[in-house]
C-alpha cells in the first residue's frame, strides 16, 4: 500500500522532490486564473459592491483553516492508532500553516466588515468561531515548542488535536446559539443568502488555488521537519560518541 511505502522518510523525501515542482506550477497557474477571474471576470455584487472581491480570498482561507485542522486530526489518528512515522511530522508542520490561513480569514473578514458592518470586528458567529480556532492552533504550536522530545510532543499534541476535533462541532454549535441569542440575524452575512454562478466559479478556482498552496507549503515544511529530526539524531549520536558515559541518558529520548 502506497500509504505505508512512504512511511520511510528517505523515500518520502524523494517523492517530494518529484512532486513539488509540478504542484508548485499547478498552484501558480491556479492562482493566476483565480486572481484574473476574481478581479476581471466576476461582476460586482448588487449589495456588497466591489467589496465582494474580498470574499474570493476570505472564503478559501476560511475553508483551508478548517481543512488544515481536519488534516491534523487525521494525522493525529495516524500517530496514535496506526503509528505512522510521518504522521506527527505532518501534524506538527500543518499547525503553523493552518494558523496562517486562519489569520488570513480573520484579517480579510474584518477588512470586509469595516465597509459592510461599519466596524472592524463584530462578534459574528463565524468570525468568533474562527478566532477560537486560531487560539487552538496557537495553543497547539506552543505545546509543540515546549516539549523537547519530538516523539513525546507528537503524542501529546495528537491527544489535544483529537480532543479539539471532537469539541470543534460543539464549539461551533454553541457559538451559533450564543450569537442568535445576543444579536438579531444580520442582514449582511459573510456567506450571503445564495451564491450566483458568476461568483461561484472564481470562488471555486481560488479555493483550488489555496488548497494547492497549502499542499505545496505543507510538503516543504514536512521536508524541513524531517531534516530537522535528522540533524537532531545526528547531534545526539555525535554527543554520545564524544561522551560515552552519558550516552545512554542522551541517546534514549531520540528514539
Amino acid at each position: 500500500m502506497a500509504f505505508w511505502d512512504y512511511a520511510n522518510p528517505t523515500r518520502f523525501l524523494k517523492l517530494v522532490q518529484v512532486v513539488l515542482p509540478w504542484l508548485t506550477g499547478l498552484c501558480v497557474v491556479a492562482f493566476a486564473a483565480g486572481l484574473y477571474m476574481s478581479f476581471f471576470v466576476a461582476p460586482e455584487d448588487y449589495q456588497q459592491g466591489q467589496t465582494v472581491r474580498i470574499m474570493y480570498i476570505h472564503v478559501p482561507a476560511a475553508w483551508l483553516s478548517m481543512m488544515c485542522y481536519s488534516i491534523m486530526a487525521v494525522s493525529s489518528l495516524g500517530t496514535l492508532v496506526w503509528k505512522h512515522p510521518l504522521a506527527d511530522v505532518s501534524a506538527k508542520t500543518a499547525a503553523p500553516i493552518g494558523a496562517a490561513f486562519t489569520f488570513m480569514a480573520l484579517v480579510t473578514g474584518s477588512l470586509w466588515g469595516k465597509p459592510m458592518w461599519g466596524t472592524y470586528w463584530v462578534w459574528d458567529a463565524r468570525l468568533t468561531s474562527v478566532l477560537v480556532l486560531l487560539i487552538m492552533y496557537l495553543g497547539l504550536m506552543t505545546l509543540w515548542r515546549t516539549m523537547d522530545d519530538p516523539i513525546k510532543a507528537g503524542k501529546a499534541a495528537a491527544v489535544l488535536t483529537l480532543a479539539g476535533a471532537l469539541n470543534l462541532p460543539v464549539i461551533k454549535f454553541s457559538v451559533d446559539w450564543w450569537n442568535t441569542l445576543h444579536q438579531p440575524a444580520s442582514v449582511m452575512r459573510l456567506d450571503g443568502p445564495t451564491i450566483h454562478p458568476d461568483i461561484l466559479w472564481p470562488l471555486l478556482v481560488m479555493a483550488v488555488a489555496f488548497t494547492l498552496l497549502f499542499f505545496v507549503l505543507h510538503l516543504m515544511a514536512m521536508r524541513n521537519e524531517i531534516l530537522r529530526r535528522r540533524v537532531r539524531t545526528l547531534r545526539l549520536r555525535a554527543a554520545s560518541a564524544a561522551h560515552p558515559r552519558s550516552a545512554v541518558a542522551t541517546a534514549q529520548p531520540a528514539e
Binding site: 477560537v132 487560539i135 496557537l138 495553543g139 505545546l143 489535544l160 464549539i171 454553541s174
Partner: peptide, 12 residues
C-alpha cells in the same frame, strides 16, 4: 499553557 489549551474547549 494549561489555561491557554483549555479555554477554547471550555467555551461551550
Amino acid at each position: 499553557l494549561l489555561a491557554v489549551l483549555v479555554v477554547p474547549l471550555a467555551i461551550p
